[in-house]
Amino acid sequence: MLRQLASKRLITQRIQILPRFYHEKVIDHFNNPRNVGSFDKNDPAVGTGLVGAPACGDVMKLQIKVDDTTGEIVDARFKTFGCGSAIASSSVATEWVKGKQMEEVMTIKNTEIAKHLSLPPVKLHCSMLAEDAIKAAVKDYKTKRAKSNVDSEAEPAVKAAQA
């Protein structure tokens, strides 16, 4: 009994001494990550951004689903290999891009993500990775679309030539 009380007191004492290591929001996103999962990357409405490298200890995959006519991001998914801050950064990124225009999400800055999660300096690269992932996803969607436009325009031309 005494021992248990003593140990409880020990923990409470230490809270006051030690600085916070992870911010509550990081813990929240780590424990309950939003929008985990994958879309079919071959779907023309989906843009995929894959950034980072396993050797650096961070790989982020962020996917957006875009409404073809309005250019609005209707849904987003992520999968991340990395520390808690990297997982939280990508989780926040998916939340923020949803329902926004593609041009709008290109302006999301890593500093905003870092500030939202109160990331310490050693974890700033996690938020930069999230920013890169958003940009890569938008870029992927745009190149895919441009390609399919070219293809659809090119195809009838080929057919016409054959005829």
Partner: peptide, 21 residues
Amino acid sequence: MSPLYEMVKEGIDIKQIQWSQ
């Protein structure tokens, strides 16, 4: 949650990918 695990399950060799460092 890991994109690497997903790729391996899809049969992609992670070591062959050109990662941006």
